[in-house]
Structure formats: structure tokens, C-alpha cells
Design a protein around this nucleic acid. Structure first.
Lengths: 135, 135
DNA sequence: CTAAATCCGACTAAATTAGTAAGGTATTAA
DNA sequence: TTAATACCTTACTAATTTAGTCGGATTTAG
């Protein structure tokens, strides 16, 4: 039930882009050094976020990444969904009929719904307001 | 953000014990064959749940496992906490001061709180009422 | 005594994670 | 036009985690 390092980096990078909003694209290098993330690794992550449609890229000199939508329209849920594959903790296959109790599915489904709803309602702009080191 | 197979087995086993409540201890073999879980693996899981205090064991012939408390007092949150180590998706160490933004921590903390609260409020007796294959 | 069961620790194969590395492609400043 | 910048893509690797397996010791009812 942990978010992977990869996803944590992704969230941090997105917050970084939100902070940078209205300021042109931010390059991998900038974000990576600013957040202490390995550059080559972040590159992969950003590519995935781009394919997911929540960031756009500009190639060439002075290029970089920027949010596709404003921080107030970009939810953490989307970020996690893109990077984590799915928020679903269940793995219900077609052989559900063989399972002696599908109540487990129900539990896992409730967990999923709860997580999804929580994350989908946290937007990047809120996070910018949060003070640093508040813990 | 997935619950591991191990934890899913644990939840299923606990539901199985809840169903068996007031009926003496259930053996690993019974549970394992009933739920389609590898016996030796389930043995490990049950031992962990016992050390966690939510089930008790009876050794020897006719022995097995039983819930420490009634199904209405046993929450899924406890099961997951014991097996998954912690519900916390964050890994905030003492070097938090080096992090350029702790807002990530805040997000992860909110996620954690949400999951914990959800799971802590799902009790085994509720799950017994859920119809099989309801999906 | 012995069969049924928990208990315990060590071991292993497969999958996942967290990166590295290297080279290609597009864009633009000069 | 060319050089520099920065994205893009794929392949590889070491370390960790996961999902088990296995062998044997201990406990207990009959």
C-alpha cells in the first residue's frame, strides 16, 4: 500500500511545474536538481505523464515541460493513476466465479473507491498553499 | 497502490474465520482448500496475524485458528496494517528538512489518513452479509 | 504412541523497482 | 546552416520484494 518512489517523484515534479506555472516550460534538469531527483529517471517519468496527457512538452532550446491545465484543474489522482497504472488494489479476473467469497472484492473495491475519491479531490493549487516543512 | 497477494489472502482467511465463528477453530488446511490459498504460505500469514493479536491458535489435533474478537469487532484495517506493515504510503525520514517541498508529505499523509479511516470502518461482520458474486 | 495440527527458520525463483546508459530527434539561437 | 539544447526512446542492470516451498520441531487428542 505504498506509493512507489517513481510516483512520489512524479507528484513532486508536478508540484514543481505548478509552482512554475505561467513561467514558460521547465526543463528536466531544472526540476531534477531542484527536487533532488535523478535526471534520467525523471525523464522517463515525465514522458509517461506527457503520454497521460497532463503535461505538454516543448523540445529544443529553452524547451521543457509544462502543465496541460492549470494547477486548480490538475488533481493528484490523475498523476497517481498515470504512474501507478491503476488505483485498484484488486485483481479480479474472469474466474471470479471460482472464488468462494467475492466479499473480498467488495472490500478491495471500497478501498479503491476511497483512495480514488480522496486523490481526485486534491488539486495542485491546494498543495502550493501548504507551507514547507509543515509535516 | 495495490494490496499484495499476501494481504488479500489474509483478508480472505479472516472472512473465512468470521464465517466459522462460534464453531471452534478452523485449521490451515480447511481454510486453504476452501479459499484456494497455498497451505504453507497461509501458515506464514496466519502466524503473523496471531502475532498481531487478532487471531488465536490452538495446537494439536482438532486445533486451528479462531478470531480473538467477534467479527463485529474486527476491522479490515487491522488486518491490512498487520500484513502490510503500515498503511502509510510516505517514507518521511529525518532529512525532511532537505526536501524542497514537504507538500508531497502532506498529500501522502492525506492519502494515508483516508485509507486508514476507510479500512478501520469496515468490519468482518458486514462482509459476511455481502452476497457472493455481487461484484 | 501416533496422527493431526501449529510453529519456526531457511531457502529460492520470479517479478518489480529504481535507476543507468546510449543514442536518436526536434527546435531554436546565433 | 550549424551547434547547442532538450526532449524522446529503448535496452540494460543491480537490488529489493514477493510469493511461495521445504524440512523439521513442538503440542495435543485419542
Amino acid at each position: 500500500m505504498k506509493v512507489s518512489q517513481r510516483t512520489e517523484y512524479g507528484i513532486r515534479a508536478m508540484i514543481s511545474l505548478a509552482r512554475h506555472y505561467d513561467n514558460g516550460p521547465a526543463s528536466i534538469k531544472e526540476i531534477a536538481t531542484g527536487e533532488g531527483i535523478p535526471g534520467a529517471f525523471l525523464e522517463q517519468i515525465m514522458a509517461e505523464l506527457r503520454r497521460g496527457g497532463i503535461v505538454e512538452s516543448q523540445r529544443g532550446v529553452n524547451g521543457g515541460y509544462m502543465l496541460s491545465n492549470s494547477p486548480s484543474e490538475t488533481s493528484v489522482g490523475t498523476v497517481v493513476e498515470i504512474l501507478e497504472g491503476s488505483l485498484s488494489p484488486a485483481r479480479c479476473e474472469s474466474d471470479c466465479s471460482k472464488m468462494p467469497d467475492c466479499s473480498t472484492r467488495t472490500v478491495l473495491k471500497r478501498i479503491e473507491e476511497s483512495i480514488t475519491e480522496t486523490l481526485d479531490n486534491i488539486y495542485l493549487d491546494e498543495l502550493l498553499k501548504v507551507g514547507v516543512h509543515e509535516q
